[in-house]
């Protein structure tokens, strides 16, 4: 096995949902989706977020979009309008999850993604 950052395998979006936030993670290909279904368990996601997620993590499967949806309960420090945090709506939680390292088989090669083949100018991705 080897490790890859989640953003090599998937993209994501997050926002506020009920008492916390949700993160939808979309794999780029079928192999990536199978890896995510195996690796990206609610327990691992909760551990990754550390002190940010104080409640449970729930997971839902959307095979039609090669996607997993996570509900991160009690992750905003109060509900959206009542939170004192800068990110009161969990808008940055998707980017936080994409930083996670994922274990993949040695022979797995992430797909060529994107329209231009370019990488982010910031150099982190």
């Amino acid at each position: 096995m080897k490790k890859l950052p989640l953003y090599a395998i998937a993209h994501a979006r997050s926002g506020d949902k009920g008492d916390g936030s949700n993160v939808g993670v979309l794999a780029y290909d079928d192999a990536g989706y199978e890896i995510l279904r195996e690796w990206l368990t609610p327990a691992r996601v909760k551990q990754h977020f550390g002190g940010i997620v104080r409640g449970d993590v729930e997971r839902f499967e959307m095979p039609n979009l090669k996607a997993l949806n996570f509900l991160l309960h009690d992750s905003l420090g109060g509900s959206g309008s009542a939170s004192l945090k800068t990110d009161a709506q969990g808008k940055t939680h998707a980017m936080a999850l994409l930083r996670m390292e994922v274990e993949v088989p040695d022979d797995y090669e992430p797909p060529q993604i994107g329209t231009s083949g370019a990488t982010a100018p910031g150099g982190e991705l």
């Binding site: 993209h11 994501a12 979006r13 926002g15 506020d16 949902k17 009920g18 949700n22 939808g24 993670v25 979309l26 839902f60 499967e61 959307m62 095979p63 039609n64 979009l65 996607a67 949806n69 509900l71």
Partner: peptide, 29 residues
């Protein structure tokens, strides 16, 4: 990809998205 990201935005249980008009199953899209 851009549409897919918006589909999962502010999503709860994707198989039961409740509106006053119907209940949508987002796993069929």
């Amino acid at each position: 990809d851009t549409v897919g990201e918006q589909l999962v935005y502010e999503m709860g249980d994707p198989s039961g998205y409740i509106t006053p008009d119907c209940v949508v199953d987002f796993t069929t899209i």
